[in-house]
Design a protein around this nucleic acid. Structure first.
Lengths: 229, 229
DNA sequence: ATCAATAACTGATAAATGTCATATTTTTAG
DNA sequence: CTAAAAATATGACATTTATCAGTTATTGAT
């Protein structure tokens, strides 16, 4: 199921769209497509990356291990996003681990073709820069949320985020199902605390659950909660 | 005291060093030098920036107001750093406020010369990209610290950070003096909590104080505390 | 130098969150 | 399908952190 980058729709959503025909050809010739099973790593914190990963399908969590042994999820990367750019550009080993949250299909693009284009094609470089500027802004927002909002607010926000970014299935559950542990690692709290708050939300009729799946029942109240009522 | 960017030492520390002679000339001709008094703003959250600020002297805090009315300081920018790049590049209004922590001298560079160079000089763009990649990594670290470390650990870390990045004066106090409120806004806690922990550190002989000035007395123990003992 | 304003500090208490222990449910492997 | 493993759930309690109320110290303007 090998296909050409030139024809890849995914590309429209990331910085590769700023590449020239020839550059894209080179990328396409050097790339390899990989399937990664749910729970398997794309790479681990500290690895030297020889390229970047372009997500064709599935979701990856980017996380960092803290001193107390807990993972903090910093970002969820989905279809169209490029993972690993930061460390390739900074020429450092990666500061984050990437793990498949569900079955994934990714293209691995060796760093040479990326770096070469970064030096030659300012449109591409600027496009990458714009994406990184966006990520930085989001990171700033996360910092503020982490330090100024309660766990309850952060969990409510996480559910809204999941709805807005990954949507819902036919039955009205969030399309991306995270384990309670992953949820707690996104909001930065103990798993038990997250579970407790989920139970509370359920009792109050803000959400409904079925197994590990969660559906939003009263979006408005969740929003109010996030804003601080 | 107007001087030319071409001769500015500060430039060596930021992305402007990747500019060509002519580009630098254009920047130098269009820039203006400003003095900003301690406590005064460079810009406020939501402002549209018409350029970037290059810090020649002094320190600026970059902060974001949270829903509960507290400021969260996201970064301290010092000599050599360029402020406001992110929003100029993303062509958005700024997500942060910048305020002078002490008397500052900055150069304001209109965005036109920056943007023009971003489109024409890939070396410059890549250099800016590298700086932003660095900022993003630091932001990731802050997220992990905020969510996984106790207030005590974060305060200890803040003192070590201040020592490593701004040094100490002749009397052994941290060269950059922040108010207790600013300290609490850096680590994301209530001012009273920060004060309490500072008192505790003092009692335990980790630091010494004189007015609002703080000096590190037992760096090793502070480091141990941060790592979690 | 003096006084008003601001910042730093302390105590008491409430609220939020983490930890540990254990029960229950769901998922997975064979 | 079933047993074992893993994940979810809940209770009791400890710890951390915030809030409110008030005092003391420092700073800045006249």
């Amino acid at each position: 199921m090998e296909s050409r980058c030139e024809n890849c729709i995914i590309r429209q959503f990331n910085s590769l769209r700023a590449m020239s025909k020839e550059e894209l050809k080179k990328v396409s010739d050097s790339k390899t497509t990989k399937k990664i099973k749910k729970g398997d790593p794309l790479f681990e914190e500290g690895d030297k990356l020889n390229g970047v990963y372009c997500v064709r399908d599935g979701v990856s969590k980017l996380s960092k291990l803290s001193a107390n042994g807990k993972d903090q999820i910093v970002k969820l990367a989905t279809k169209g996003e490029v993972i690993g750019q930061r460390s390739v550009i900074a020429e450092e080993s990666t500061n984050l681990s990437a793990t498949a949250v569900n079955d994934m299909e990714v293209c691995f693009i060796p760093k040479e073709s990326i770096i070469h284009t970064l030096h030659k094609n300012p449109d591409f470089t600027l496009e990458v820069l714009r994406h990184m500027a966006h990520d930085l802004k989001e990171a700033d927002d996360v910092i503020v949320n982490m330090s100024q909002k309660t766990v309850k607010q952060r969990i409510a926000e996480a559910f809204l985020y999941l709805k807005n970014n990954f949507g819902e299935d036919e039955e009205g559950f969030l399309a991306l199902t995270l384990s309670r542990e992953d949820i707690s690692n996104v909001v930065g709290t103990a798993t038990e605390s997250a579970i407790r708050i989920i139970s509370e939300f359920k009792k109050k009729g803000l959400i409904h659950t079925s197994g590990k799946r969660i559906g939003i029942k009263n979006e408005r109240k969740l929003v109010e909660l996030v804003e601080g009522f």
